[in-house]
Write a protein that binds this DNA or RNA. Structure first.
Lengths: 143, 143
DNA sequence: CGTACAATCTCCAGCGACTAGAGGTTCAAG
DNA sequence: CTTGAACCTCTAGTCGCTGGAGATTGTACG
């Protein structure tokens, strides 16, 4: 397998070219060798590493977590418990987020149901926004 | 009711001082009158408007949506259908997000279940990350 | 009235994870 | 050898704040 240009790597892994350069800049991807004209050339290892990164991002892991997961994966003899803990921590975050969003969803649905579709002056949507006490639930800030 | 300093407004509405100044900067809150020494002084109208904003943010509305909702609420004679549409659009976004996060949650749970808690070299977590095809679901990018 | 000090002011930078654009260079096909 | 797509670097912008520096103002107390 011959070396890949950044564009070929991009198409193969489905990660945009500027994103690949960004990953190099923040040290997630190693700086690859260059041609005479200073263009990047990637090998099979880079394809794997970038796939790993892409997949972890799709699963919502933060870059810092991915950095740790990558460095763990480089030491196969070590116990995998640290990786376990990273995933568990992330799962808990996802669960908290789902719970918050479900509250939000219910609040938004009620607002729409209660709206009589008349004028703004008597619109429940506007009224509820203006007065938190009319809400069904307590909701903290999302995101 | 006497005028409020930015700190008093902040405590009353539970929005941080720099955030209040930021809202003024982006035109969400009107620039209030100032004292001789150029300190801001707020009235009852600002308390309501900022409460509205805070509540809408808690419900996950973007600043642009809040801008529209605020300008709608200033015209009580108009039909409330535009407000309706903004809320519906937001609700749909929330629902999409919940669905994606639920997929993620399931994937993360499977990863944790499958992990034998041994060494990294045989860890399912690392393997799944390295190879998307081992996933139960298709998942696009979250957020 | 003077002093101390908390609160306020403006301006600027940073967060996370990219994304986009300008302006210039290199590669590869024909 | 020419053309033009792809590449290069650098900078700035996204969203919604948040924090800090360094200067000024308001207010309570003696």
């Amino acid at each position: 397998m011959t070396d890949l240009s950044i564009g070929e790597l991009s198409r193969r892994v489905a990660v945009k070219v500027p994103t690949i350069r960004y990953y190099e800049q923040i040290g997630l991807l190693p700086a690859p060798p260059r041609t005479e004209g200073r263009q990047r050339r990637y090998g099979a290892g880079d394809v794997s590493r970038l796939s790993f990164i892409r997949h972890a991002r799709e699963l919502g892991f933060e870059v810092e977590a991915i950095r740790e997961l990558l460095s763990l994966s480089a030491r196969p003899e070590q116990p995998c418990e640290p990786a376990d803990r990273i995933v568990l921590r992330h799962l808990e975050g996802v669960e908290r987020r789902i719970a918050q969003l479900a509250l939000l969803r219910s609040e938004l649905r009620h607002m729409l149901e209660d709206c009589r579709h008349g004028q703004v002056g008597e619109c429940r949507i506007i009224q509820v926004l203006a007065d938190h006490d009319q809400c069904r639930h307590e909701h903290g800030r999302v995101e």
